[in-house]
């Protein structure tokens, strides 16, 4: 490495995240994933302006038609344009996927890290709460929430997030318990750092690998969970749509009108692939031990 490059690197004041970004930029597969996700988000944002039809515009005479020049991805049994519905569905699915996962991530990582780090009685109590929540039938929990607070899309995010964090908390806790005994954590203690500072600076960054992988798995599962809830009448209501709902309806009419299943399926799979590529790339990028060059 040339001297000036070294000096430049020294000046840059790189941190873990900056280094990670530099490394991510060299991972084309991860960048591709990021681009796809970005594209999907932009399309979702602009949908009201760029969608070819309205999402509730019916054409009962037309009925279900296969893809054509007017309707690129065909129409459903009510003659509604599939492309439009997938675009509007993406808005809901992506929002649910990201927000609910973010909620799960936030609660899960903090809960798991604190339980694992403090240990002892605190740990026992915190993890028993997790166990109780695990044991609680999920549906009853959601239905209860809906009954008490009414049907509300925000509540849906919270409800899904509040269930998905349990596994995250367990994963993080087991990681933290192993980390807690490491000498660098003890070194941080002997420097007088407060518990929270140690968790934030020394513990959580070292749990990122498994957390990222699990996150990329959570997002699609959250999207499908939303579909399930919507199907039961607890989530999004027709004529609004989401990818999960579209897939559900698509499955019912799979034999007669396969495009009703295929296209929303492609949209969801594409997101899933992009997430996996990005997740793997992020995991490698955030681990300084993988080569920088």
């Amino acid at each position: 490495m040339a001297i000036d490059e070294l000096q430049q690197r020294e000046k840059q004041g790189t941190s873990l995240w900056q280094d990670a970004w530099i490394k991510l930029c060299k991972n084309y597969l991860a960048l591709f994933g990021l681009a796809i996700l970005g594209l999907l988000c932009v399309i979702s944002l602009l949908t009201p302006w760029i969608a070819p039809y309205g999402y509730e515009e019916q054409n009962l005479i037309l009925g279900a038609t296969s893809p054509s020049m007017e309707h690129w991805l065909g129409t459903d049994i009510f003659g509604r344009d599939m492309l439009t519905r997938i675009m509007y569905g993406g808005r809901v699915s992506l929002t649910v996927g990201f927000i609910a996962t973010a909620v799960a991530l936030l609660i899960g990582v903090v809960w798991g890290a604190v339980a694992g780090f403090v240990g002892g009685r605190t740990d026992a109590v915190m993890m028993r709460i997790v166990d109780i929540m695990y044991a609680l039938p999920f549906m009853i929990f959601i239905v209860l929430l809906m009954v008490v607070f009414g049907r509300n899309i925000l509540l849906l995010f919270l409800a899904i997030g509040a269930v998905e964090w349990l596994t995250m908390a367990r994963i993080v806790r087991s990681q933290v318990m192993a980390l807690r005994k490491q000498e660098f954590v003890e070194a941080a203690h002997s420097l007088g750092l407060s518990q929270w500072t140690i968790i934030r600076r020394h513990i959580i960054p070292n749990t990122l690998g498994p957390v990222i992988v699990y996150t990329t798995l959570t997002i699609p599962s959250v999207m499908l969970l939303e579909a399930f809830l919507s199907f039961l009448g607890l989530g999004i209501q027709p004529p609004q749509s989401s990818w999960g709902l579209l897939i559900n309806y698509g499955v019912e009419t799979m034999e007669e009108y396969p495009w009703l299943l295929i296209f929303p399926g492609i949209a969801l799979s594409l997101t899933l692939f992009a997430l996996n590529f990005l997740g793997d790339g992020l995991r490698d990028a955030l681990d300084p031990r993988t080569s920088k060059d």
Binding site: T14, S15, L16, Q182, E183, F184, E186, A187, A188, S190, L191, G192, S194, R201, H202, P205, N206, L208, L286, D287, P288, R289
Partner: peptide, 25 residues
């Protein structure tokens, strides 16, 4: 109350592979 005292006494550990946070420069 111990924090200012911690500053005045420090420890060097045995295993230099475990005593440094791998994600900090």
């Amino acid at each position: 109350q111990l924090v200012p005292w911690r500053r005045r006494m420090q420890m060097i550990f045995q295993d230099p592979y475990a005593s440094l946070n791998p994600r900090m420069t």
